[in-house]
Design a protein around this nucleic acid. Structure first.
Lengths: 145, 145
DNA sequence: ATTTGAATTAGAATGATTCTAAGGCTCAAT
DNA sequence: ATTGAGCCTTAGAATCATTCTAATTCAAAT
């Protein structure tokens, strides 16, 4: 009996990711993301992946980011217009965006927010998810006025 | 004493908008937005403005949307990748995005959310704004399964 | 070894937005 | 009324992220 193709199914995910064939390119791209806390763009990932997978193409990075996003292994983050950013943080978290330096950092959830108690939702609407972006100044920029 | 140039400074805004010279093109574009509840894209606004300002250019629509956004008269909304959407709703509100039909509707705030009590913020960070996107199914799509 | 379908690739195509350069228009001072 | 300065508008080019296309490579099951 041949071994089944290697798949990726990280623990700790909230919505169970579906399996994805784990090719060398995909594994390295996924690893780049798990080792990055700065929410890199596709091009950022491409640059970081090049030393690990010589000859990798930007198309593969785009394809892989899409695959991993659809399978639920990573998240696509779009706070501003401009290139999408990607994130492998599986904890339930929100994003903090510094208006001064543009950095995006994660903030873990301490206590859930109940949508119905805070906002007037259209009658009959079904809420599946709550995305929160906090904006302001990061500690570094806040100190520098 | 000559009259000061006409400016726009709608009431009810949370962060006082700065004045903007109100040209015919800008007024019509602003009016298109105040009469739209569907968060139109720049192209949508362009199409709707054409009957009011014959010969208007898409460049003017882009320029005006940028001007009005910077002056605080309208808001730019970027929920997904893809064209930005615009919104003249001055009430404190969040956005509800239907995963099925893509519609974006506003939901008024009933009770403020205190960021510090819900999320672990980086020590020293200054929060200025809280952007919330609710995702799920709108009443129509929820009914249609 | 052969087949089948998925993965990868370079490059073209797309689409939203921004930029550029050239006129137009307004307004305040003449 | 005329003029000068500066903003407003415009067409079209340029940019940039992303998606598409078509060809090639690869991997797993036969």
């Amino acid at each position: 009996m041949p071994p089944s193709p290697p798949t990726l199914s990280p623990a700790g995910s909230t919505t169970a990711p579906t399996d994805v064939r784990m090719t060398p390119a995909r594994k390295e791209i996924y690893d780049v993301l798990t080792e990055s806390k700065d929410h890199p763009t596709a091009t950022d990932v491409f640059i970081r992946a090049q030393s690990r997978v010589p000859g990798i193409s930007l198309a593969t990075v785009y394809n892989t980011l899409e695959t991993l996003t659809h399978s639920g292994h990573i998240k696509q983050v779009n706070l501003e217009r401009g290139p999408s950013r990607f994130c492998a943080n599986k904890h339930d978290h929100v994003h903090f965006h510094c208006d001064a330096c543009g950095a995006i950092t994660d903030a873990d959830v301490q206590e859930e927010v109940d949508p119905r108690s805070h906002w007037k939702l259209p009658r009959g609407a079904k809420i599946n998810r709550l995305d929160v972006t906090l904006r302001g100044l990061c500690p570094t920029c806040a100190k520098a006025h």
